[in-house]
């Protein structure tokens, strides 16, 4: 039992289970999954589908956080990527041309890689603190996205593009497969030694350098990967609604992603990282959002409700909070004991 509680996934899974349980009690058909035209429908499927952009961004963020960094620009990259893809498609002669869509997707992904490289260069070569370095693109990126869309919402009418974010493969949403693919790529860090290097650089950069680890390359690569993840998330998001909104797409994603990483057990101090934890963290956030909409919390207080739940999640995960809580519990049981010792002394 003790080992179970110590496992890094224990508390995140508990929270997720509690959320799902609440939903089950509140709306018994929450777990119902139905089949229409070869597609599965249901709240759980929705959570996976709508949560996939956040999961992607959070996976990239995990590796950045593991190097003791942070990437605030992911929300902007989401917007830019979607905007570029949609612009390219909308300018094409035939919006359903597979070549056009491939070119547009590659363009968006390529641009996200470049943006990730930019962040990485600022952090690793120029030595700017990550929060500042990525703040630049967070602010400027919104502007770039608006520039690309011309301040308008670009809509596309391409069934093939829409497939990326809302189509389904083998009855499941296609986006889930995208997430699985990216997660597998991220998990490659565990198969190669990159994971070891990321953790060692995040934990002690000086010692890593002395041990011959190429810290600069490691840092550069995690920011590039994070940019890539955000770019793909931008494609999913814009394809799901068949439009690109430079102002609002991916807004505040960076914060949700950081939250997902932390809930998943990766410390902002860098070092050990947990990709599966991050996925669960992102699912918790998405489930929470869905739950709030489902139980019909008035829109003006949804953020407050979300804040309270997030606070609770963080407190449950905090070792010192649990210890303090346990201590209080004990003294409440034996209130007289403290008194006695005080008088004796």
């Amino acid at each position: 039992m003790g080992r179970l509680v110590k496992h890094h996934l224990f508390w995140p899974l508990c929270v997720l289970a509690a959320l799902l349980l609440f939903n089950l009690c509140y709306s018994p058909d929450f777990f119902t999954i139905t089949m229409h035209d070869g597609h599965l429908y249901g709240s759980l499927i929705d959570i996976l589908n709508f949560g996939s952009p956040l999961i992607l961004v959070a996976i990239g963020m995990t590796l950045v956080v593991a190097t003791k960094g942070i990437d605030l620009s992911v929300g902007s990259i989401v917007a830019i990527s979607g905007a570029v893809a949609c612009l390219s498609i909308s300018k094409g002669p035939d919006q359903n041309s597979l070549v056009l869509i491939l070119i547009s997707v590659l363009l968006a992904v390529g641009l996200s890689l470049v943006l990730g490289l930019w962040n990485g260069l600022l952090v690793s070569v120029a030595g700017i603190q990550p929060i500042i370095a990525t703040l630049i693109l967070m602010v400027a990126g919104r502007g770039i996205a608006q520039l690309v869309t011309g301040g308008q919402i670009i809509t596309v009418t391409s069934a093939k593009y829409a497939y990326i974010g809302s189509g389904s493969l083998a009855t499941l949403p296609f986006s889930i497969f995208v997430v699985i693919l990216v997660l597998l790529i991220a998990l490659l860090t565990r198969r190669t030694a990159l994971g070891l290097f990321i953790e060692s650089v995040g934990c002690n950069p000086t010692a890593s350098l002395m041990a011959g680890v190429r810290a600069k390359w490691v840092i550069l690569s995690v920011y590039i990967f994070c940019g890539l993840c955000a770019g793909i998330a931008g494609l999913l998001l814009s394809s799901n609604v068949s439009s690109a909104d430079g102002n609002n797409a991916g807004l505040w994603y960076e914060l949700d992603a950081i939250l997902a990483v932390v809930i998943g057990g990766t410390s902002l101090n860098g070092g050990r990282y947990y990709l599966t934890g991050t996925v669960i963290g992102a699912l918790i956030i998405q489930t929470l959002t869905t739950t709030i909409y489902m139980i019909g919390v008035p829109p003006e207080i949804t953020l407050v409700v979300k804040a309270f739940v997030v606070l609770a999640v963080c407190l449950i995960q905090s070792d010192s909070f649990r210890a303090a809580f346990a201590a209080r519990w004990k003294t409440r049981h034996y209130p007289a004991e403290k008194e006695i010792t005080r008088h004796v002394s």
């Binding site: 070891l196 953790e199 060692s200 934990c203 002690n204 010692a207 002395m210 070092g271 050990r272």
Partner: peptide
């Protein structure tokens, strides 16, 4: 501590 060990590993 600073140039040798990677504490969390």
């Amino acid at each position: 501590k600073t140039e040798g060990i990677i504490g969390d590993l």
